[in-house]
Design a protein around this nucleic acid. Structure first.
Lengths: 141, 141
DNA sequence: TCTAAACTTGACCGTTTTAGTCAGGTATGA
DNA sequence: TCATACCTGACTAAAACGGTCAAGTTTAGA
């Protein structure tokens, strides 16, 4: 049970972006250098973040990315959803005969996995980008 | 972020085992049939559970496995630990120069991942095998 | 004593996912 | 007009996953 680097990088990059986007758009190149993430990989990630309306892009020279919402309104769950970082605790397929088919004959531990999924997702729904920036500031003082 | 089938199967098998081990040891063959898990794979899993003192084996004809502790004393965290189902949210290596090396220059989101790990692990530490059996009984009534 | 049931161990392997790289673009401010 | 930066899609090496297969050892019961 582990977090993928896509999800981790997305959050890191957005925290970085949030710190610098007051004045100018931030280029992926800068984020790449500061965070040590490959530029090509960042482009993949930001393409998804853009599709999900978390960031906006400004093309051309001196271009870059800016947040498209207030950091308070960007929850972890939005970010993870954008980059396909899903929480999957069950693998019960609808057409399986053995075990759980999602209907009548639930596998004996099905409730447990549902609980676990909710437990994790509640964490993601609570945390906003703003929380992370604040947290960082506190640690810096 | 997903649960591996090893962890999932381990819990399913142990719940099954807990239900039947009052009288006789339970053979993996029976569990395999009831839960739809490959016998060979179950053997790998139970080998690990045995090494971690969660079950005991009785060899020979009419043999099988029994729990080596009271279901109340077997927490999910014990089971997952036994089958190497770890919760990994960070991949910060000690010798990395960029990003987080675990010491002075923590990556900017390090605290977040620690929080997440604790959040998930607290769930595993609370739940015992006994809880799952009870839960099952309630659903049956 | 023999045999079948059940545990034991370890090697092996196809598939999928991960974590990127690479190679081309297109848009635009200076 | 050109350097900068976004944009897109194909490609891939390596690791993890989810098992299978083979060859045992041990022991209860006939």
């Amino acid at each position: 049970m582990k977090l993928t680097s896509k999800g981790r990088y997305a959050v890191m990059a957005l925290v970085d972006l949030a710190r610098f986007d007051n004045i100018n758009p931030v280029s992926l190149r800068d984020i790449s250098l500061r965070q040590g993430i490959s530029l090509d990989y960042l482009e993949q990630i930001f393409s998804k973040l853009k599709k999900n309306h978390i960031v906006k892009s400004i093309r051309g020279n001196q271009g870059g990315y800016v947040l498209s919402k207030n950091p308070t309104d960007i929850k972890l769950t939005n970010i993870f959803h954008a980059v396909d970082e899903k929480v999957k605790t069950v693998q019960c397929k609808k057409d399986s005969k053995k075990g759980c088919n999602g209907k009548a004959t639930k596998c004996i531990t099905h409730n447990l996995w549902d609980e676990l999924e909710n437990h994790i997702n509640s964490f993601f729904e609570k945390k906003s980008l703003e929380d992370l920036i604040q947290n960082r500031k506190e640690n810096r003082l």
